[in-house]
Nucleic acid binder design. Sequence first.
RNA 1: GGAGAGAUGGCAGAGCGGUCUAUUGCGGCGGUCUUGAAAACCGUUGAAGGUCAAACUUCCGGGGGUUCGAAUCCCUCUCUCUCCGCCA
Length: 424
Amino acid sequence: MLQLALIRQQPELVRERLKVKNFDAGSLIESILLLDDQKKKLQLELETAQSRLNTISKEIGQWIAKGDGARADEKKQEVAAFKASIPSLQEKSSLLDRQLQDLLVKMPNLPAKEVPPGRTPEQNEIVRTGGSQPQLAENALAHWDLAKEYNLIDFELGNKITGSGFPVYINRGARLQRALIQYFLDYNTAAGFTEYQPPLLVNEASAFGTGQLPDKEGQMYFVTEDKFFLIPTSEVPLTNLYRDVIVKANELPVRMTAYTPCFRREAGSYGKDVRGLNRLHQFDKVEIVQIVHPEKSYAVLEEMVLHVEKLLQSLDLPYRILRLCGGDMSFASAITYDFEVFSAAQKKWLEVSSVSNFETFQTNRMKIRFRDEQGKTQLLHSLNGSSLALPRILACLLENNQQMGKIALPKVMHAYFGAAEIRG
RNA sequence: GGAGAGAUGGCAGAGCGGUCUAUUGCGGCGGUCUUGAAAACCGUUGAAGGUCAAACUUCCGGGGGUUCGAAUCCCUCUCUCUCCGCCA
């Protein structure tokens, strides 16, 4: 959520920046400023009445204490004369508040200066590429075929017990998945991230805090009985750990990591893109989240990009890093770098990580603050990234490393997996 | 799931209709003293809105009600604790 003060002070800047996201904020800003103005006037009126009421009430108490019931009654009459107006003022005020809030929530985050304009994924900027693409045989198999051949994943079984998009990992498939998770977590904690195991279900306030609500409501599984959302990413519970917290200076930066399953309804997805592990309703992900001083967030962002990049390098996967254009960025993000690995058998790039700086967009919703040198509370910046999402990494590892009768694993996984290769 | 108790400022913990819109202790910050530190003493110390700054308003788990006036009384929801039941 954007800060009202920013919209109030620099409406033109806000409007201009949002054009990069292809968002026409003109009328929205106008309405917000108008409502804000009305609210201020109303508030003054209301507070004046409240102040008067408080004063007279105090006087009544004093007259009663002195035993002068007549004077007290007189004052009560005085109160009765204007008190009736207060409830309607309060109602109007809270209505304005709600309307203002509803509009503010519709404002996307401002893209950072570095964000290129554009509407489609083709307009994302390739920042750099790394790793080398393997030369596979003509008859190279896609991961869903490899998964079947080596009995690593059973998609049909998942269909039976739940539905499509809920694969069952078996034997060495399950073990490889677990080994990767363990490796990712170790890699993150070695870099100073504290490991958490958060709840997989969150309440409405948490889903709102990170920006999933209100606009991505349909993408989350919802438990109606208890009003809980299944997390689409551990970013939600992790960041919300600091909701309504004034973080002490010596606790900054906050660096967290967690492995959790993630649940996404993926309503509207279909076709070739959803084949095999490419797009799932339940998948595993190791996430990193940071909450940092506002002046440091862009240095931290670069650091996180390097962190994820080195992790991909250690897996010997061909990758590229994209700076998303305005049109491809999420509502809440100020800048996003996507990491894609090349799936050699499918011959396409698959997104395996997304590293973003949200600046104050999330922290404003969650009131995550610190005290500056003057002792004033100020919003912190929040960032997060995948480090890493499992399924597509697994898919690429299988496809890119397939050899005659076996799948060779990258060196770094040998000890974690307990073997150097998967044989038929 | 059943019964009872409770939720107050960073923490502990008073207040249970009007003696300032919250006693006090601890902690934090500033100062005196000290070569320095500790101790002691003095002062200061919640959040949001509002203002140049103030005044002022709101917030005692959330929401609603009674009253001239609510942390305090009533209703309701959420959560916590104790006991019982069930259970990995």
